[in-house]
Every structure is written in C-alpha cells, then in structure tokens.
C-alpha cells in the first residue's frame, strides 16, 4: 500500500481518484467508445469506401495543407513575437503581449465572421489584395488565414517562457566571444528553444486540423476545393448518415490522438518547458 502511493498522509486520495476516474470515464472515455461502437458496425469495405471517397480525400488534402502552412507561418511569427516580447522594451509592449492571447479568448465564430469581412472583395484588406489579383475569402488561402488566427498563441506562449528563463546573458556571452547575431541565434539560442518551438508548432498544427468555427465562415465551403474535413463530418451528419460521419471522425480522431501522444512525448523529454503549456 505504501509503495503504491507514497504521499499517503494527505487526505482525499480515495475521493479525488474516484471522482477523477468517474469524470474522465463519463466525459471523455465513454463518448469515445460510442464512436468505436458506431464504426465497428461498418464492414471494412464500407468503412474504406467512406473514408476514401474522393470528396473526402480532397477535404483531407485541403485541411492538412492549410494546417501545415498555417502552423509554419505561426512558427516564424510566434518566434518573432516571443523574441521581441522578451528581449526588447518598447512602448505598447504590455498591450501587445496581452493581444497575443486574443485568439484564445475570442470565440471562433467571431473570428471567422470578422476575417471573412476583412478579406471580402470590398473588405478593408480584400480591396487592396484584389488589386494584386489575390483572393482570400472563399479560397484555400482564407482557410489558412483562419487557421493562422486561431492558433497564434501556441508558439508564442510555449517559446516565451523558455526565452525568459534563458536570459540575455548567454547571448551577451556569445557576442563578447565574437559571434555574429546570426551565429548567436543559430548556435546558442535555437538549440535551447527548439523543443518549445517544436511543441508549439505541433500544438498549432493539431488545433488547425480541427478548426471549424473560424474556417467555415471564410472558406466558402465549395465541394472539392474549400471543404475542410470537420465540415465533411458535419455535412454527413446533416444527411443523417451517422455511420459515415463516425467513419470520417475516426480518421480525424486517430490523427489527433497520435499528435497528442507525440506532443506529450516531446513534453516529457523536455520537462522544463512543461510549465509553459497553457
């Protein structure tokens, strides 16, 4: 018993473990089994036919490519923001810092509605982009923009604490040893923030794969072109084809669970960035 739980003098083990298992079982695990039951009713051929339907496959490609581009954008943008927020002092810095969390606080439907309006052909941005013949609303690019917006905070908020802890003295040491700013960044800073950067980007990618609210407002949802996989599930549901919805969802779910385990793996290997996860 004692080896089983070593901090045994503190109260509430039974009640807290009991309610944790109850809650996680009821809220998280039970619904997952519902999906498994539904999918298990399909034959392998039917299952394969649903998930390899060309329109669905097109949605995989749209979703994955947009999420990839969005998370790569956020990799650079997040790194830049984390850097200037931790290393420089300038007017408005505190406000800018607070602004970084906006996408998490702002409901996705609001983000979608607003981005669609901004990038519409008559919108604030859209009218100028039209001059260059760039269309964002109702295109693949619109999906990327929505995904970028909703996942901005991930990289910033994972890299920022690491940079804060790392401190500028290492850069100063490197500079006094004669390294150029680029050498300093590449040899001194980058190795230190790499795990956080990787994790932030992976989180951003995961979030983008599942993004729905912001995307459907701006994507136009044109079959074969701008339908994301989440929307495909939604469409199957509206057709009351629950089995097909479940089958597609199982693919999405599997991918997100794999990503979750990868992210947890990164986090475990680099414990020191775990506190940064919000």
């Amino acid at each position: 018993m004692s080896a089983w739980r070593s901090k045994s003098v503190l109260p509430g083990f039974t009640i807290s473990l009991g309610s944790s298992l109850f809650f996680i079982g009821l809220v998280i695990l039970l619904p997952l089994t519902g999906l498994v039951i539904q999918v298990a009713e399909l034959s392998w051929q039917d299952y394969w036919a649903i998930i390899s339907d060309p329109r669905v496959v097109a949605s995989y490609k749209v979703t994955a490519s947009a999420a990839l581009v969005a998370s790569i954008f956020n990799l650079f943008f997040g790194l830049l923001m984390a850097w200037i927020l931790t290393r420089y002092r300038f007017p408005g810095r505190v406000l800018l810092d607070g602004l970084m969390d906006l996408p998490f606080a702002l409901p996705t439907a609001v983000a979608g509605l607003t981005l669609a309006a901004l990038f519409a052909t008559q919108g604030w941005f859209g009218q100028y982009l039209a001059l260059w013949d760039i269309k964002v609303s109702y295109t693949w690019l619109g999906i990327v923009v929505a995904m970028v917006f909703t996942s901005v905070p991930f990289v910033v908020r994972t890299v920022q604490p690491v940079l804060e802890e790392f401190g500028p003295e290492y850069e100063e040491a490197s500079a006094t040893l004669g390294a150029s700013p680029w050498q300093t960044f590449w040899h001194v800073i980058f190795p230190e923030i790499k795990p956080a950067l990787l994790m932030g980007t992976a989180l951003s990618f995961t979030r983008s794969l599942g993004e729905f609210g912001a995307v459907i407002f701006i994507a136009g949802n044109i079959p074969w072109q701008t339908e994301v996989t989440s929307l495909m599930i939604f469409i199957r549901l509206q057709e009351f084809d629950y089995a097909a919805a479940a089958a597609i969802a199982s693919v999405v779910l599997l991918v997100s669970l794999i990503l979750l385990f990868v992210i947890n793996g990164i986090q475990q290997r680099y414990q020191h960035i775990s506190g940064a996860l919000k």
């Binding site: 070593s6 996680i24 998280i28 995961t206 599942g210 729905f212 549901l237 992210i263």
Partner: peptide
C-alpha cells in the same frame, strides 16, 4: 498529491479534449 500507477495516463487523457476537433467532440456525444 499522490503517486499511483496510471498517473501519467490520467494526465494524458485529460488532454484529449484539446486535441480533438470540436466537431468530432460534438459527434461523439
């Protein structure tokens, strides 16, 4: 406050809702 077998698993399970697409979450229910 306690160490017990499966503690890490519990922490991973509680992360699932953040990894799952909201549409899939709704569908599960």
């Amino acid at each position: 406050r306690f160490t017990f077998p499966g503690r890490r698993l519990l922490l991973t399970l509680i992360d699932i809702p953040f990894a799952v697409s909201p549409v899939v979450a709704g569908l599960l229910y």
